[in-house]
Computed example of a mutant assay.
Amino acid sequence: MMNAEQIKHLQHQEQEQTQKQVKVKVQKKRWISRGEKFLYTVASGIVLTASVFMVQFSSTTDALNRDVQKLEQQVKVQKTTNENLQYEVKELSNPDRILKIAKENGLKIQNAKVKQASTIGN
């Protein structure tokens, strides 16, 4: 048989065991894991970088298009000016006009045949 002291000791041990609380770490389930966060961050960075390059490329292309349009406009103006000058050269080199100016300045024309020189001597 057990004596009273042993019984008390056993009761005391049982009380200690029931009073001990086991501490359990409860981990809250995260909505997004670390790996997913990393992947989302990398994907966002790539999309952002691609967007910046697209905007920059578009801006450069627009600037080049504007420059090309300005040059085309300048070419048109220059062509028009050249055509006007060619017409004026033809008009001023008319043989009748030359004869009229020659007579006004007192030149005597011995031969009525006036030829237009298109090229200067070879």
Rank of each mutant, 00 (worst) to 15 (best):
Met1Leu: 11
Met1Arg: 06
Asn3Ile: 08
Asn3Ser: 05
Asn3Trp: 03
Ala4Val: 15
Glu5Leu: 11
Gln6Arg: 14
Gln6Lys: 13
Ile7Gln: 12
Ile7Phe: 15
Lys8Val: 10
His9Ile: 10
Leu10Trp: 09
His12Asn: 07
Gln13Leu: 14
Glu14Gln: 10
Glu14Arg: 09
Glu14Pro: 00
Gln15Pro: 00
Gln15Asp: 10
Glu16Met: 02
Glu16Cys: 02
Gln17Val: 02
Thr18Tyr: 08
Val22Ser: 04
Val22Glu: 09
Val24Glu: 12
Val24Asn: 09
Val24Thr: 11
Val24His: 05
Lys25Gly: 04
Gln27His: 08
Gln27Cys: 07
Lys29Gly: 06
Lys29Trp: 01
Arg30Asp: 15
Trp31His: 05
Ser33Met: 00
Arg34Ser: 11
Gly35Thr: 08
Lys37Glu: 05
Phe38His: 06
Leu39Ile: 03
Leu39Ser: 03
Tyr40Arg: 12
Thr41Asp: 11
Thr41Ser: 15
Ala43Arg: 08
Ala43Phe: 04
Ser44Val: 03
Ser44Glu: 06
Gly45Val: 03
Gly45Leu: 07
Gly45Trp: 01
Ile46Pro: 00
Ile46Glu: 01
Leu48Asn: 05
Leu48Val: 09
Thr49Glu: 02
Thr49Arg: 01
Ala50Leu: 04
Ser51Val: 03
Val52Lys: 02
Val52Met: 06
Phe53Thr: 04
Phe53Val: 10
Met54Ala: 15
Met54Val: 13
Val55Tyr: 07
Val55Lys: 07
Gln56Thr: 14
Thr60Met: 15
Thr60Phe: 08
Asp62Lys: 15
Asp62Ala: 14
Asp62Met: 14
Ala63His: 06
Ala63Leu: 13
Ala63Glu: 11
Ala63Pro: 00
Leu64Phe: 06
Asn65Trp: 10
Asn65Met: 14
Asn65Gly: 05
Arg66Val: 15
Asp67Ala: 07
Val68Glu: 15
Gln69Tyr: 10
Gln69Val: 13
Leu71Met: 09
Leu71Trp: 07
Leu71Cys: 03
Glu72Tyr: 08
Glu72Ser: 06
Gln73Glu: 10
Gln74Asn: 13
Val75Phe: 14
Val75Thr: 13
Lys76Leu: 09
Gln78Trp: 03
Gln78Met: 02
Thr80Gln: 15
Thr81Cys: 02
Glu83Arg: 03
Glu83Ser: 03
Asn84Met: 09
Asn84Lys: 08
Leu85Gly: 05
Leu85His: 02
Gln86Val: 04
Gln86Arg: 06
Gln86Cys: 02
Glu88Ser: 06
Val89Ser: 15
Lys90Arg: 12
Glu91Thr: 08
Glu91Arg: 13
Glu91Tyr: 09
Leu92Cys: 00
Leu92Tyr: 00
Pro95Arg: 04
Arg97His: 14
Arg97Trp: 04
Ile98Cys: 11
Ile98Met: 14
Leu99Asp: 00
Asn105Thr: 00
Asn105Val: 00
Asn105Ile: 00
Gly106Cys: 00
Ile109Gln: 05
Ile109Glu: 02
Gln110Glu: 13
Asn111Met: 13
Asn111His: 07
Asn111Tyr: 03
Ala112His: 07
Ala112Gly: 02
Val114Asp: 01
Lys115Asp: 10
Lys115Leu: 13
Gln116Cys: 05
Gln116Asn: 14
Ala117Cys: 04
Ser118Cys: 06
Ser118Gln: 10
Thr119Asp: 12
Thr119Lys: 12
Thr119Met: 12
Gly121Ala: 07
Asn122Leu: 06
